[in-house]
Design a protein around this nucleic acid. Structure first.
Lengths: 145, 145
DNA sequence: GGCAGTCACTATCATTTTGCAAGCGACTCG
DNA sequence: CGAGTCGCTTGCAAAATGATAGTGACTGCC
């Protein structure tokens, strides 16, 4: 895919997208977060074809974002749970959600509330060093070698 | 796609992914940010087939994330620039990059530095209300109706 | 003027991925 | 025993993607 080694090979964005770079995977993660952990729940909630769901689930498991756990032997029943890597991806989904609300948010949309304050959560990406939102300060790139 | 109206129809994540939900689109945005604004620059940097690049560029333009601007009449030359919506998406790419670095970051990767301090930027998604990183406080969902 | 070369594409076709529909094994419940 | 649910797999059609070739508009060189 990459010819230019200064580019995709060393680009962390691409590294991330290698693992979750498709729509269904992200929506699956979102639904698992919402508590829809079983195959049938995911299938009906997403309206996804069963073969596609199977493939996405195993891809996500291979990528280390979810894991399959048998919670009942008889009848055999499994659930899909987020790993640490999967949970770490959720903030990104919330940031995408905030963007979607802003630029494609006609009508009423679901949202997250802070359980303690009851306030609507407003996800923003900031630089942990300065606390400033990304985009509010000039940045520059650094390439390896 | 959606059967369950509590789900995709009202989900801001899905609304966002409707516009940029594929790998190439995100990588194009990243490259434009890096200053690769011309067709040939993007094509060689990404190693993408020309027909695919054309389609992605017009999809991104239709979605309002980039716009095409002719900067030279003779010879006819165009460049692709980020719109406000496109620039607003960049922090998400940085968050994906941070995740990719953490979970798929073997070897040396490129990174962003704060132009003023020279420090490596560490993107984190926080709740703008509390300033707390998403994931550090319990949340709940609210669905319309 | 003629020819090579660059840029920004489009057109054609093979390959890959996605999606629909049907079916299947393991079980439960009546 | 028969219907129903869950968690899939299989087969096939449709759509998206990707490789390759080609095209039009120009520039720059001899």
């Amino acid at each position: 895919m990459s010819e230019d080694e200064n580019n995709l090979g060393t680009c962390p964005v691409d590294r991330g997208l290698m693992r979750v770079g498709d729509r269904w995977s992200m929506l699956v993660l979102r639904d698992i977060e919402r508590g829809l952990t079983r195959y049938e729940q995911l299938r009906t909630s997403l309206g996804i074809a069963p073969n596609i769901l199977s493939r996405r689930l195993s891809a996500l498991a291979d990528a280390g974002l979810i894991e399959k756990r048998r919670y009942s032997q008889r009848p055999p029943r499994d659930e899909y749970l987020l790993t640490d890597a999967g949970r770490d991806f959720l903030p990104i989904l919330m940031a995408i959600g905030a963007w979607g609300r802003k630029y494609n948010g006609a009508g009423t949309l679901s949202r997250h509330l802070d359980a303690a304050t009851g306030e609507v959560v407003r996800p923003v990406v900031v630089d942990a060093n300065t606390g400033a939102p990304i985009g509010s300060r000039p940045l520059c790139f650094e390439y390896p070698e």
